[in-house]
Design a protein around this nucleic acid. Structure first.
Lengths: 162, 162
DNA sequence: CGTCTATAATAACGCGTGTTATTATCTCCG
DNA sequence: CGGAGATAATAACACGCGTTATTATAGACG
């Protein structure tokens, strides 16, 4: 197999740069909200799923549970969300939006919609659809590769308890 | 303007997730190298541009100069790179690969090539080309938006010296 | 019933990133 | 020349993310 073109070799960096710049663009406009992008993601999912556990929210947001703990710590301090004990499982917490958070959600979507439309203003509708489709496929593939790797590490750990 | 579809609204998160999963996939295989993805990026650019300044490297890698300082600090500690004083500018440093780093570069590319080909194994050549093209356009657009914003902040700062 | 494994949340550490501010130096212009 | 503004690098602080390890509890199974 000949070495891939320089252009192709840049793909990983390209995705990363787009992600970074996109986040930057969003957070520049979301500044007044005092919310970061991952925090917005949490709010967006919580809006439609109040009462879920951290573990479930981690699944929905595709966040590492440990990462989520810290994000929620800050969001709790900032009075966006609340942790309440789960009556049926003393290990778990149920997550709720605080009243103070609710009015912000609409503004958040508005900013998100605008930031996105600016970002993709150089694509027409069909191209945008293509981009979503292609990224979606790669995403699904990477998720499989990831869970496969996580699986085999877990199996490894089971084989070597200590 | 009607609110965009849920699918479209996911675009920002999607890009971010792909970036995160891609990085994860790469670093899982690059583990033996003891190198992170940004560090690989530094090495890759340094390989073809030895002797450049940090500021120039920051441009090439599209990294925040402050971020680069810290990355280079670690890479210097880990004996990947060297900072030498610039004889013509006492503020600046010139960056060089250490001999120890050079043998690793080939392995790095090999891992990068493999990680990428796995990641995009679900795309055919044409789709891959499309993805590169679309992402490239969005990237360029976001860069413009970013530099425009940076510009106006700089102008702001000039207007308000203190 | 008790033991063993899985799960929910968290602690602690290192890295990358963005932000604001500081220091030293350069450069250019009056 | 000399002072003003730009530039190279860095310091300090907060956030997100991955990793390993720990604690408490749940659930399954002999």
């Amino acid at each position: 197999m000949p070495p891939p073109s320089e252009r192709l070799r840049n793909l990983g960096f390209l995705v990363r740069d787009v992600s970074r710049l996109y986040g930057r663009h969003f957070e520049r406009q979301a500044r007044e909200l005092e919310l970061t992008l991952p925090q917005c993601k949490v709010l967006a999912h919580l809006q439609r799923n109040e009462g879920i556990s951290q573990a479930r929210l981690a699944e929905l947001t595709e966040t590492d549970p440990m990462t989520l703990v810290r994000t929620l710590d800050r969001m709790q301090t900032d009075r966006w969300v609340e942790r309440r004990p789960d009556p049926s499982d003393r290990r778990a917490h149920r997550l709720y939006l605080r009243e103070e958070a609710k009015p912000v959600l609409a503004r958040m979507w508005k900013i998100a919609d605008q930031a996105r439309s600016e970002a993709i203003s150089v694509l027409n509708e069909k191209e945008c659809e293509q981009l979503l489709e292609l990224l979606g496929r790669v995403h699904q593939n990477l998720q499989q590769l990831d869970s496969r790797a996580t699986e085999s590490r877990a199996a490894e750990a089971r084989r070597t308890p200590l």
